[in-house]
Design a protein around this nucleic acid. Structure first.
Lengths: 167, 167
DNA sequence: TGAAACTTTCAAAAAATATTGAAAGTTAAT
DNA sequence: ATTAACTTTCAATATTTTTTGAAAGTTTCA
C-alpha cells in the first residue's frame, strides 16, 4: 500500500468512526487530516484535501476548537489562519473522554437520579421502575467516575498502568 | 414527579442516549420500556406505548435480539409473541460493550494496523503518518483489550473491584 | 386444507442531519 | 477611511437515516 492510498483509507475510516466518539464525519476527517500532517494547515488546504466547502470547514473547525482538540496557529507574516490538532494520542483520548462525560453522561446521570427518586406508592410497577432506574443510575455513575479518574491521570498512566492491570 | 411522567422522561432520555451506545432511538426506547416493565410485552403493547408502527417495532425488536439484549418469551396458550430484556444492568453493560467491540472497534484496529504498516520511504510525511497511526493503533488496541477484559469478568466484578480501584 | 392471528419485509415517505455557497462580517495594512 | 484578504453565518439543498403501512409470509388451530 502506498502513502496516498493509506492516507485516504485512514481519513475515511476515521471519518466513519466519528459516530463512535460522538462527532460527525467531516469533523472527524478534518481531525484525522491534521493528525497526520507534518505542518499546520489552512482552511484552503483542508477544503482542497477533503473536497468540502468553505462553510463546512469553518463550522467543523470551530467545533473541533470547542472540543479543545484543534487549535489556531498564527504564522507570523501570514494573513491566513492555520490549524493543528493535539498530536499525542493519550491526551486526545483524555480530552474526548472528558468532553463526552461532560456533554452526554453527566446530564443523563442527573435525569436517572431524578426519575429514580419518585415517591414509592407501593404498586409493583413503581417498585420495579425505582429498582431498575436506581441500578442504572449507579452503574452510569460508576462508569462516569471511572472515566474521569482515568482522564485526570498523568501522561502515560493510562497505557502503562491499565495495560498491566488488564493484560 | 408521578410514575407516568418519570416513565416518559426515562424512556425519552434513554432513547436520545441511543447514539452514545450506538443504536437508534426506537431501539433504545423499546429496550427502556421492557427494562422497567414488570411483565413481558407483546408487539401491540410496545406499538401502543411508544406510538410507533408495526414495521418499526418488528425491525427494532429483531435488532435488539441480534444484540442479545432482548429475548422472545413464549407464553403458553397465547398466540402472540412476548418480549423481555436483560434486567441486570451489569450484564446489559457487558453485552453492549462486547458487541460494540466486535462490530466497531475490532474492524478499526485492523485497518489501523494495515495503514500503519506501509513501507517507510524515508520522507517526512510518511514517517509522521506511520508514527501517528501506530500510536493510534496501540491506544485503540489497549482500550479494546481493557473492554474485553472487563466484559469477561464475573458478575459484580465490575462494580465492586473497579469502583474500589478508582474511587 | 382453510382461514384467522399474527409477524416480517420493503418500497415509499418523512424526518433528521450534514453540506453548500454566497452574502455579511471581520481584520489588517496602507 | 478604504480595500483586500480572509472567516463566519445561515437559508436553501442534498444526503442519510428512520419510519410507515400495506402486501407477503408464517404459524397455529379447527
Amino acid at each position: 500500500m502506498e502513502y496516498k492510498e493509506a492516507k485516504e483509507k485512514f481519513i475515511s475510516t476515521w471519518g466513519s468512526l466519528g459516530s463512535l466518539w460522538g462527532i460527525n464525519k467531516a469533523m472527524a476527517q478534518i481531525q484525522a487530516l491534521l493528525f497526520i500532517s507534518t505542518k499546520p494547515l489552512s482552511m484552503e488546504d483542508i477544503m482542497e484535501e477533503l473536497k468540502i466547502s468553505r462553510g463546512n470547514t469553518s463550522m467543523n473547525l470551530r467545533q473541533l476548537m470547542d472540543w479543545g482538540i484543534v487549535t489556531k496557529e498564527i504564522i507570523p507574516g501570514e494573513r491566513k489562519e492555520y490549524f493543528t490538532t493535539e498530536k499525542d494520542v493519550e491526551e486526545l483520548a483524555r480530552v474526548v473522554a472528558k468532553e463526552r462525560s461532560r456533554r452526554e453522561i453527566k446530564p443523563v446521570v442527573k435525569i436517572l437520579k431524578d426519575v429514580s427518586s419518585i415517591n414509592d406508592d407501593g404498586t409493583e410497577k413503581t417498585k420495579e421502575f425505582i429498582k431498575q432506574t436506581k441500578a442504572l443510575h449507579e452503574l452510569t455513575e460508576t462508569m462516569d467516575s471511572m472515566i474521569n479518574k482515568v482522564v485526570n491521570q498523568q501522561q502515560n498512566w493510562l497505557t502503562k498502568s491499565l495495560l498491566k492491570l488488564f493484560k
